[in-house]
Every structure is written in C-alpha cells, then in structure tokens.
C-alpha cells in the first residue's frame, strides 16, 4: 500500500482513497488460515476467461460475466444473495434489495477473476458460503437462504464480530468480514448505494459552489 503510484492530483484523491481503502481493508479483512487455502484449488482452475487487457474499450458499461465466466454454483449464489440482503437491508420500502441490484454478481465476478489481487478471496468466499449453508442445515435443517430472518441473524451474530467471536467461528468470521467488504463495495457503487450513503456527485454543474452553510457550521467554520 505504500507504493501507490504517481503524481496525479486528479488522482491524489483516488490514490489517497486507495490508501484509506488499504487501511480499511487491513483493519477489516482477516485472511484465511493456511489450511483453508491449502484445501482449495487456485483460481486459475475455474476461471480461464479473458483478462482486462492493455487496451480495453473504456467507455463501455461492463457487467459481471462480460470478460470472464462467473464460477459460483447456483447454491453458493443463492446463499451469497441472501447474505447481501441481510448485511445491507433497504432503508426505504421503495428501495431494492442488494440481491435485486446484483451485488452477488459482483462478488462472483471478483472471486472468479484471473487477477492475483482477487485470488486470495476465492477460497475465503466459496468455502465460507458452503459453510454458511452447512451451518444453517446443522442448526435449522434448511439452506441459509431458506431461513427466517431471526435464524439468519442467529448465525450472523456469531460471526459478524460485533461481539466476541468464539474460537470455532474464527474462519467463519474471516469469511464474513471479507464478504461484507465486497458486498458493501458492490452495493455502495450502485445509484441506490450512492443515495444511501449521501454521495450526490457525478452530475455536471455550472459552478462549483463549495461547502454549504450547513457543512461549514458542522465544522465550526461558519
């Protein structure tokens, strides 16, 4: 994270954002223990699709699956969709569920990609989703997606890290942290996610008005 490159101040924002993300990721992501990685095939075993390439068409809107095949099984995808909805429930009745926005497809794109940066997440996510269904079956005799919300919460509460996590749930906690990182990244990148978090940019304006009086007041600058 220290060598995020280059001068660009249009990009200092992005570069710094990457650093903050790095710090956040370091704080939030707990990578899988070695045994989990040992058990799983490397990502190249299933993807095999194209890389981004050195001269891709930039002003095209890509969707997951455009460049490389998605690799979650239907069962894993169902569990992933259900967990995104649990983590990021709509605030308003008119809002869509994350699963309706396709957040699980982004997670699938991520863990199916041929890139080294994402490869370490593949075993964490796929094994974690399998565990989620197995745990749901163990406790409630149903797959995770079929559980009632209190049942889902019972499992999530044990692994989400809000309270002390028992030793036997450490791997599951690693999975949950990383899954939440990806689910939130995907969700907050959608127009609904922008609105949700209070991002109102990416619209052309005649003037840059600077901070509002309310913002200045908030900071003691008014």
């Amino acid at each position: 994270m220290e060598n995020i490159p280059a001068d660009n101040s249009g990009q200092i924002d992005r570069r710094q954002a990457l650093k903050w993300i790095g710090a956040a990721a370091a704080a939030a992501a707990v990578f899988p223990h070695a045994s989990a990685q040992d058990r799983l095939a490397p990502p190249s075993a299933s993807p095999g699709g194209k890389r981004i390439g050195w001269d891709p068409l930039l002003n095209k809107n890509y969707v997951p699956g455009d460049l490389w095949a998605l690799t979650l099984t239907p069962k894993q995808r169902k569990a992933a969709a259900s967990l995104t909805d649990l983590i990021l429930p709509p605030d308003n009745p008119s809002d869509k569920l994350p699963s309706q926005l396709g957040v699980q497809a982004f997670i699938d794109e991520w863990i199916s990609s041929p890139y080294d940066e994402t490869a370490k997440d593949r075993p964490v996510i796929t094994e974690g989703l399998d565990w989620l269904d197995a745990e749901a079956q163990r406790r409630f005799q149903k797959d995770f997606a079929e559980l009632a919300e209190p049942q889902k919460c019972a499992i999530a509460d044990d692994i989400c890290g809000k309270t002390a996590v028992k030793k036997e749930f450490r791997s599951a906690q690693n999975f949950f942290n990383r899954f939440r990182y990806l689910a939130a990244s995907g969700y907050y990148s959608t127009p609904q996610g922008w609105k949700d978090v209070g991002y109102v940019g990416n619209v052309p304006t005649l003037n840059f008005d600077g901070p509002t009086p309310e913002a200045l007041k908030h900071l003691g600058l008014a």
Partner: peptide, 29 residues
C-alpha cells in the same frame, strides 16, 4: 497535496465498519 471529501463510492466503502444490518449501514453513512 491532500484530499478529503465525499467522493464517488467504490471498493472499500463501508469496509471498516463492524456488524451488519441497519446499524452497520448507519455507521457506514
């Protein structure tokens, strides 16, 4: 050079907050 501000969300938005559900989303905001 320095950067602040409410810029376009992306990879890592919400990454550092604990828990899930409404309280998690509140902290992300």
């Amino acid at each position: 050079e320095f950067g602040t501000g409410r810029r376009m969300p992306g990879l890592g938005t919400g990454g550092a907050s604990p828990g899930y559900g409404k309280s998690y989303k509140e902290e992300v905001r």
